[in-house]
Design a protein around this nucleic acid. Structure first.
Lengths: 224, 224
DNA sequence: CGGCGGCTTGATCGGTCTCAAGTACGGTGG
DNA sequence: CCACCGTACTTGAGACCGATCAAGCCGCCG
């Protein structure tokens, strides 16, 4: 099945990226239990909505996913970015507090949350991996929160280092997300993101071959 | 055993609070498995350090706990506050990324993380509760992150509403933590916290009988 | 070639930080 | 019992960072 949508121009770009996608710390931790046909989503397509019930746990097979919350006054917050091998959809309670959207054309594998719990009840390996995956997500959100108390340059620096660890090919990072996505993830405006990119470039910490690519030139300086 | 420490003046205050402490969403979710003698910590005492290995999962029996991270430049971030029934210590990987400290005299129950995993491997109820507890923590950290993109008044408002749900007696909130703790949790300065409290009081949204107590006067206005 | 969307750059404004005093409260000692 | 002290908190004035509003640039597609 194909969740059809906008932005066809990004198809090839995303295909290329998917091939290169590297695995992160707990990548594929639950792959073994992620049965069934991977589902395709076009870039911009919604995977689940903010008010939908929490029935499934998701794994990015390839592509890139963002979780989004829109506040009453229109401000938008990105909860996180997820790439090949990452698990998402681990919300609390009955309803999702974020929606999930494919950033570029992506495929996603799913498993019923209840099935996962039932299986974990007599599979110690799964129980452990489940705790690892959720603990990993807690850490990720904590470091996201930690980033939000820093200034603009530090936020962008942390973001680039995070992306470097998760999707870089060598020193080159090809960003699947827009400046607006980055801004909403970092809690700053798109203008400030842009200015900071320019500023980091003029400090020779990064290079910007084009708007969607970043080359890290001085990682230790970026770390401050 | 007693992890002895400073601030004896807060003993009685904390005792009173412990009695009143209400249960939150998943309070006591793992109590059944939290075996052994509760451990006492004096206010200000360290429960675990930032670099200690992640061996245990903790439950507040009574009192109040904060998780703390100190950045290289001296800035301090509070990861969260935990009250009676709350689970903490769910860090990822080998080492804790935050330290945990008793805010007031507190008692804490613990269980080995490995034991929990082993038990969950043949106890579906525990496996489910474990996923609930970790998902709940993910949500809590997400809403913490969400708060950090707002302005000072909204942050303080969110904080008061959160405390209202977790430790209020009616409209009265007795805060166990200092202004500095609140500031480091909200990612603003102690001066801004203080000014915002005063401002909310002058807007008749809250009353401040004393520095450590808040009465919510207009909850719907606080919610904005 | 023209138009559109995403990104960059510029100028001004405002909220929060910083540095600095001032105040309230609890504890200690006379 | 009261005076003193230290700590936590409040209040004030000025500086600075990032938001806002606005214009310009670039690449892509029709």
């Amino acid at each position: 099945m194909y969740a059809h949508d906008i932005r066809k121009q990004m198809v090839e770009r995303s295909e290329r990226r998917a091939v290169r996608a590297r695995s992160s710390a707990h990548s594929g931790a639950l792959s073994k239990w992620m049965i069934g046909v991977p589902i395709k989503f076009a870039g911009g397509g919604e995977i689940y909505g903010e008010d939908e019930s929490v029935d499934y746990v998701y794994e990015v097979a390839h592509g890139a996913v963002r979780t989004v919350k829109v506040l009453s006054d229109g401000r938008r917050q990105i909860g996180g970015f997820y790439f090949a091998g990452d698990i998402f959809g681990l919300d609390d309670g009955d309803q999702h507090s974020f929606s999930a959207e494919a950033i570029v054309d992506s495929t996603v594998r799913i498993i019923r949350r209840n099935t996962l719990i039932r299986l974990a009840g007599h599979d110690r390996d799964l129980a452990q991996r489940l705790l690892l995956v959720t603990s990993h997500e807690i850490s990720r959100v904590h470091s996201h929160a930690l980033m939000l108390i820093k200034n603009a340059q530090e936020r962008v620096g942390s973001f680039l280092l995070e992306m470097s660890e998760r999707i870089a090919i060598g020193a080159m990072i090809e960003l699947p997300m827009s400046r607006q996505d980055i801004a909403d993830y970092l809690g700053i405006t798109i203008e400030t993101v842009s200015r900071t990119f320019t500023s980091l470039e003029s400090q020779a910490m990064i290079a910007l071959p084009n708007a969607r690519a970043v080359i890290l030139r001085d990682v230790s300086a970026l770390r401050q």
